[in-house]
Computed example of a mutant assay.
Amino acid sequence: MPFAHAADGTALHYDVHGERGGPPLLLLSGQSNSHRWWDAVRDGFDAEFTTVALDHRGTGESGRPDTDTYSTPGFARDVVAVLDHAGIERAHVYGTSMGGRIAQWLAAGFPERVDRLVLGCTSPGAPHGVERGPEVRAALAQPDAAAARRALAELMYTPEWIAARLAADPGHTFHTLGDPTMPAYARRRHLRASARHDAWEALPRIAAPTLVVHGTEDLFNPTANAPLLVERIPDARLQLIPGARHAYFEEFEGVATPLVIDFLRSKGEEGQEQEEGQEGEE
Rank of each mutant, 00 (worst) to 15 (best):
E279N: 08
R77T: 12
G109Y: 09
E19Q: 14
P227H: 07
H92Q: 01
D43K: 07
W105S: 05
S32K: 06
G109R: 09
G63K: 01
T223C: 15
A103N: 12
F249R: 05
D66I: 04
H175M: 06
P180F: 13
L83Y: 05
D262Y: 05
R64H: 13
L152K: 14
R137K: 11
H56D: 05
L28C: 10
V41I: 11
E154N: 08
L203A: 09
I241H: 08
R113E: 00
G22E: 08
M1P: 14
A151I: 07
L238F: 14
H13I: 02
N221A: 08
E112G: 02
H190F: 09
F174Y: 11
P209Y: 02
L264H: 03
A86E: 01
A164K: 06
Y185A: 15
S29W: 02
R245K: 13
L259W: 08
G243Q: 12
T96C: 10
W37G: 00
E281C: 07
A151V: 06
R137T: 12
R101H: 10
D78A: 12
Q104N: 04
T72N: 14
G22R: 07
D39S: 05
E131C: 00
L106R: 03
D39C: 01
A126M: 07
L203I: 03
L264W: 00
I102T: 06
T59P: 01
A91M: 00
G22M: 12
R42T: 12
E154Y: 02
F252Y: 12
F3I: 03
A4T: 12
R77Y: 04
G280T: 10
G74V: 07
F110V: 00
F3N: 04
Y185Q: 14
A40C: 09
W161N: 06
S123R: 05
L219G: 07
L219I: 11
D218W: 08
A126I: 06
A193K: 01
S194K: 00
G44W: 02
P170W: 07
A91G: 01
G129E: 15
R132P: 10
N221D: 08
G243K: 14
F49M: 13
V114I: 07
N225L: 08
A145W: 12
Q272E: 15
D55Y: 03
E217L: 11
W38I: 10
L152R: 14
G268K: 09
R20L: 08
E131V: 00
T96Q: 11
A207Q: 04
D43C: 08
P24I: 11
S71T: 14
D55F: 05
A195S: 09
G268A: 14
Q104F: 03
T210V: 07
T67D: 15
G60Q: 03
T158C: 05
A148N: 13
D8C: 05
Y248F: 15
R150P: 09
A107C: 02
H17P: 02
T59S: 06
E276I: 07
G44C: 02
L155A: 11
D68E: 14
E282F: 13
